[in-house]
C-alpha cells in the first residue's frame, strides 16, 4: 500500500510539474526562448488566489478564476514589455532578461506581501478518498490535481491539432517566416502562447499551494526549475513530452523522498536530468527530424 500511496502522490506532484512544464515547452516551441520567469508566475497566481480568498472573502472558485485572469494578463504584459523588443536579439540576451523578470517578480511580491510565509488554505474542501478498507487514503487535492492535469492535456491536444489557431501556433513554432507568408500574425500568436502558458501557471500555483500550503515570494522558483527539468526530460517543445516528463519527475521525486531521503530528493531529480542529457539530449519524446532538401 505504501508504494501505491507514493505512486499516486508522485503522479499528483508530477501533474503540477506537467502543467508548469507545458508553459515552458509551449513558449520554447514558439518563441525559442526559455522563460525562466515562468516559475514566478506560479507564485503570483497563488498569491492572487490567496488574497482573493483571505482578504476579499471571495469563494474559492472566484479566487481561481481571478488568479488565472491575473496571470494571463501578467504573461501578456511581460512578453510585450520585456521579450518582444528582443525578438531578433541573441538568445543569451533574452535568457538574461528572463532571469531579470524572475527577480523582479519575486522582489515585487516581497515588497507587496512581505517576507513572512502565508498559510495557503486548500481550495478543495472535499473529503479524502478511502480505498481498501481505509488502507489507502488519497486526499481530494491529489485526485483533483491529476484530473485537472488530464483535462488540460486533452484540451491542449485538441486545441493544437483541431483548431485553426492551434495549427497556426504549431506552424509558427516550425517556421515563423513561412507562417507569416500564410498570413499568420506571429507576434499575436506568441502573445497568445504566453497567455495560455501563464494561465496554466496560475492553475498550477493554486494546486501546488493546496498540496504544499506554505506561500512565499520564492515559492515558485523551485517548482519552476523542476518543471523546466521535466520539459527537457520529456523533450522541450513537445506537449506530450512535457506531460510525460512532469509525471515521471514527480514520481521519481516522491520515491526518492520516501526511499532515499528527503534531503537527497532534489539531487536525484537533477541527476536524472543530467543522465538524460548524456543519453538522449533531445529528451524522451523530443525528435530530431531530418529534413529533406
Amino acid at each position: 500500500m505504501e508504494i501505491l500511496t507514493n505512486l499516486i502522490n508522485g503522479m499528483s506532484l508530477g501533474s503540477v510539474y506537467a502543467i508548469i512544464a507545458l508553459g515552458y515547452t509551449m513558449v520554447y516551441g514558439i518563441a525559442k526562448m526559455l522563460n525562466f520567469a515562468h516559475g514566478d508566475v506560479i507564485m503570483v497566481g497563488a498569491y492572487i488566489c490567496f488574497c482573493a480568498i483571505s482578504y476579499l472573502g471571495l469563494p474559492a472558485i472566484a479566487g481561481v478564476i481571478l488568479s488565472v485572469v491575473g496571470c494571463t494578463v501578467l504573461g501578456i504584459v511581460v512578453e510585450r514589455l520585456a521579450y518582444k523588443p528582443l525578438r531578433d536579439a541573441p538568445s543569451l540576451n533574452v535568457l538574461i532578461t528572463a532571469i531579470g523578470v524572475s527577480y523582479f517578480l519575486q522582489n515585487a511580491a516581497l515588497l507587496i506581501m512581505g517576507s513572512d510565509p502565508k498559510s495557503f488554505s486548500s481550495i478543495i474542501s472535499l473529503p479524502a478518498l478511502r480505498l481498501f478498507d481505509g488502507q489507502l487514503v488519497i486526499s481530494a487535492t491529489t485526485v483533483l490535481t491529476i484530473v485537472v492535469c488530464v483535462v488540460i492535456m486533452v484540451a491542449l491536444t485538441l486545441f493544437t491539432t483541431k483548431t485553426k489557431m492551434g495549427k497556426a501556433m504549431r506552424a509558427c513554432s516550425e517556421d515563423r517566416g513561412a507562417a507569416t507568408l500564410m498570413g499568420i500574425n506571429v507576434n499575436s500568436t506568441i502573445s497568445m502562447v504566453f497567455a495560455i502558458g501563464s494561465g496554466l501557471a496560475a492553475i498550477a500555483g493554486v494546486l501546488l499551494c493546496s498540496a504544499y500550503p506554505t506561500l512565499m515570494p520564492t515559492t515558485g522558483s523551485m517548482p519552476g526549475i523542476k518543471a523546466f527539468t521535466a520539459a527537457v526530460l520529456g523533450g522541450i517543445g513537445s506537449i506530450p513530452g512535457a506531460a510525460l516528463g512532469g509525471v515521471l519527475l514527480g514520481i521519481i521525486e516522491i520515491f526518492a523522498r520516501a526511499y532515499i531521503g528527503t534531503q537527497l530528493a532534489d539531487a536525484v531529480v537533477f541527476a536524472v536530468l543530467i543522465v538524460m542529457l548524456l543519453i538522449k539530449p533531445a529528451g524522451l519524446l523530443g525528435k530530431n527530424v531530418s529534413e529533406k532538401v
Binding site: K164, K167, A168, R170, A171, E174, D175, G177, A178, A179, L181, M182, G183, I184, V289, E291, V293
Partner: peptide
C-alpha cells in the same frame, strides 16, 4: 509566395499544411 527551399510545415499533415495556406 512559395518560398525557396519549400519550407513546408514538416510536423503537420499535408491537409493541415494546405489549411494553413488558406489561413486568412
Amino acid at each position: 509566395l512559395c518560398p525557396e527551399g519549400r519550407r513546408v510545415f514538416t510536423g503537420m499533415s499535408v491537409q493541415d499544411n494546405l489549411e494553413m495556406g488558406a489561413f486568412t
